[in-house]
Amino acid sequence: MTVEGEKALQTELQHLKTVERPRIIAAIAEAREHGDLKENAEYHAAREQQGFAEGRIKEIEAKLSSSQVIDISQIPHTGKVIFGTTVTLINTETEEEVTYQIVGEDEANVRNKKISVTSPIARALIGKEEGDVVVVKTPGGTVEYEIDEVQHL
């Protein structure tokens, strides 16, 4: 994962532990004061939230403990597409331009222009340079892109 991805997970983990966990514990305690737990919807909702929060905490901790963080700024600039680089592509058929950063699976978010290193587009791009043309197999057929720019941010 990238350094930014690690920071985002650390921030989320900190928020879950210091804000959400205490809020949920307080909600459970308040719901218990209302009496019979079998028919107490507030209690069951709070316990469900607790289960989701604790599950997410465990998931993030596992990801952080088993992930390898790659600082792209420490890698020599070769001009090639590698993990962490930002690539501007031009669709050779439509001339449409799109820019993606290649990141780890947990960081991928197409809306934020971040694609997983395991995605078909990223796999086709890895190791290529500016000016190269790559063919990407998509569910809708094959798409040909020209690599317009490779940025090591």
Rank of each mutant, 00 (worst) to 15 (best):
R47I: 05
Q68N: 12
S67G: 14
I24A: 00
E107W: 00
A45T: 12
E130H: 03
L125F: 07
K114V: 06
E95R: 13
E48T: 15
G140T: 06
K58M: 11
T18Y: 07
L13V: 08
S66E: 15
I115P: 01
G104F: 10
G35K: 11
V143S: 09
P120A: 06
E129T: 10
E61N: 01
A108T: 03
K113A: 08
A41K: 15
A46S: 04
E129H: 13
L37D: 05
N40G: 10
E96C: 04
L16E: 00
K128T: 15
Q49Y: 11
G127V: 01
I72Y: 08
G84T: 00
V103P: 02
A108L: 03
I75R: 13
H34T: 05
E61I: 05
A124V: 00
T78A: 01
R56K: 14
V133L: 04
T78M: 14
T99P: 06
I25H: 08
G51F: 02
Q68W: 06
A29F: 04
I115Q: 00
E105S: 05
G131Q: 10
V134N: 06
I70W: 01
K38P: 02
A41C: 04
D106T: 08
P139H: 10
A45E: 10
A45N: 10
I25N: 13
I25R: 11
F83D: 06
E95D: 14
K80R: 12
T18C: 03
A53I: 05
E95F: 11
E48F: 13
R23G: 08
V136S: 00
K17T: 08
L64C: 09
K80P: 04
Q50N: 09
I90P: 00
V133I: 14
A62Q: 13
G127I: 04
E39A: 10
V81Y: 03
N109Q: 13
K17W: 03
A108F: 11
I70N: 02
I25L: 12
K113Y: 12
E107A: 08
K58V: 12
N109P: 05
G127P: 07
R111K: 09
Q14V: 02
I121V: 07
T86F: 04
E93A: 03
K113T: 10
E93M: 06
A122C: 02
I25C: 03
I60K: 01
L37A: 07
V133W: 03
T88G: 10
N109F: 14
I90S: 07
G84F: 14
